[in-house]
Design a protein around this nucleic acid. Structure first.
Lengths: 133, 133
DNA sequence: CCTTGACCTCAAGTCGACTTTAAGTCGTAC
DNA sequence: GTACGACTTAAAGTCGACTTGAGGTCAAGG
């Protein structure tokens, strides 16, 4: 497969694929002239990278976990930590979502007087979240 | 309250508070010498900003929604859209969390042969998420 | 053969949300 | 009255993950 094919199948732009290769996250199996040639299993690897990104790992983390070759260096404790972190994030996002729905529904001029909203506000606003959408 | 007090109560560094003021997200009520003086209700406003950030709004979005003064320009449809977006994000993060727990638990050398994992992989890797941890 | 357009490289630019730095001001405790 | 430390400003720097731009190569189709 050439890079355009991988781009189409993975949904990632070619520039990203080149960037990932430069970072050592994926590898091309060779060249046809100066053009990269990829093996089909790069798609699987890109899916794993996507999983890692969604989980909130940095590309460097992911590179370390996936290793230069197959899938060796997976620290199970690290994965479980991240899973717990995701649980906390999910809770926070759930509170935030409820806060938004409440704010949209409740037509009081000041939400600040509503105890429900104030409680959700505290839950949603605290904690170190990066962004989710 | 001076800026240090607001920083302590809000948990935000003074530099962030100055930055927010420059962006028009908060306002100081005056100066004592050259030092800013804040009204206590800035804390409430900061909590709202935190809610917005957690929900994934940009600071510019938040500035528009909160308006220069109290809390006028709230577009309910926008809030509901964001709530729906959060629902999708929550689903994706839930799938990702399950994927991580599966990967940590299952000791098979290749997760790729496990249909459960492959399914979660697809769910978790697709879609445009920014990061969550 | 020759054009064309998809691919290439490398360096620099972008984006959002802050943080850091350098140089300066000033209220307060001694 | 003076030293100190907390505050001030404006501008520049940071971080991660890419994207963009300029200038070049080359495989394939006509």
């Amino acid at each position: 497969m050439d890079i355009a094919e991988v781009a189409k199948r993975s949904g990632l732009p070619a520039s990203t694929l080149r960037f990932y290769e430069e970072k050592g996250l994926i590898r091309s199996i060779g060249r046809h002239g100066l053009r990269r040639v990829f093996n089909a299993n790069v798609l699987e690897r890109l899916a794993l990278i996507g999983l890692g990104r969604t989980a909130g790992f940095s590309l460097d983390d992911i590179g370390r976990m996936l290793g230069p070759k197959g899938s060796p260096n997976i620290d199970r404790a690290l994965l479980l930590n991240k899973a717990d972190e995701l649980d906390r994030t999910i809770q926070q996002l759930t509170a935030t979502r409820d806060g938004l729905r409440h704010a949209a529904a409740c037509s009081a001029p000041s939400h600040m007087e509503c105890p429900t909203f104030r409680r959700l506000l505290g839950l949603a606003a605290s904690g170190g979240l990066k962004g989710a959408g």
